[in-house]
């Protein structure tokens, strides 16, 4: 195991302070990637504050926010990240068929106009680092420039978190089936 969970008595003062703070303020407490992340407490603390904002304060409609998260998790081959968001994505309004297509790295069929423009935005962003004019203005005109930035930073942050999950080998929930098929695309 690359990052055995730190026991309280093993933690430095800084690690304990951040572990407690995240445990208190985060929905879900200190879990998932934040358990290994507290090995570097100050980075974990600041990263989680950004995450908190991105989770609760965006002007991106919920199904589309989940769409951007799932596209990112697939791009990064992060099974844990995909898994922990896929059920809520369906609750938020993405269909199971679309989630399935995303898990296989396919473009979902029958997307709404809104889903399509966000899918294109996030896919282009991950594959080239850029977003074409037509793609940018489609989202900016339908929503706003602010939403374009919010989507960009959501893709960026979820990619960062995916790397943390993958590098720390954060364990997959016991008994659950890994959703990504094939496991890696690149």
């Amino acid at each position: 195991m690359r990052y055995p969970p730190l026991k309280r008595e093993e933690m430095t003062e800084a690690q304990r302070r951040v572990a407690d703070a995240i445990d208190q303020r985060r929905v879900g407490g200190l879990s998932g990637p934040y358990i290994p992340f507290v090995y570097s407490p100050e980075v974990a603390d600041r990263a989680q504050m950004l995450a908190e904002y991105l989770r609760f304060n965006l002007h991106v409609p919920e199904p589309l926010r989940f769409l951007s998260v799932l596209v990112t998790a697939r791009h990064q081959s992060a099974d844990v990240e995909f898994y922990v968001h896929m059920k809520n994505a369906v609750v938020a309004g993405l269909t199971e068929a679309k989630v399935k297509a995303l898990s296989q790295g396919r473009r979902p069929e029958g997307m709404t106009d809104d889903e399509e423009m966000v899918y294109d935005f996030c896919t282009e962003l991950h594959s080239t680092g850029h977003v074409k004019d037509t793609t940018f203005w489609r989202v900016a005109n339908r929503f706003s420039r602010e939403v374009c930035l919010e989507l960009t930073v959501t893709c960026g942050y979820m990619a960062l978190l995916a790397m943390v999950l993958n590098v720390t080998e954060t364990p997959f929930p016991e008994g659950a089936q890994k959703p990504l098929d094939p496991p890696t695309l690149r």
Binding site: G129, V153, G156, Y157, M163, V164
Partner: peptide
């Protein structure tokens, strides 16, 4: 973890610069 977060953060910032 600092190195991973650095790669992730500067990739995020790069996307912001590009977009």
């Amino acid at each position: 973890l600092d190195l991973v977060a650095t790669c992730g953060y500067y990739a995020m910032l790069a996307m912001v610069l590009n977009v």
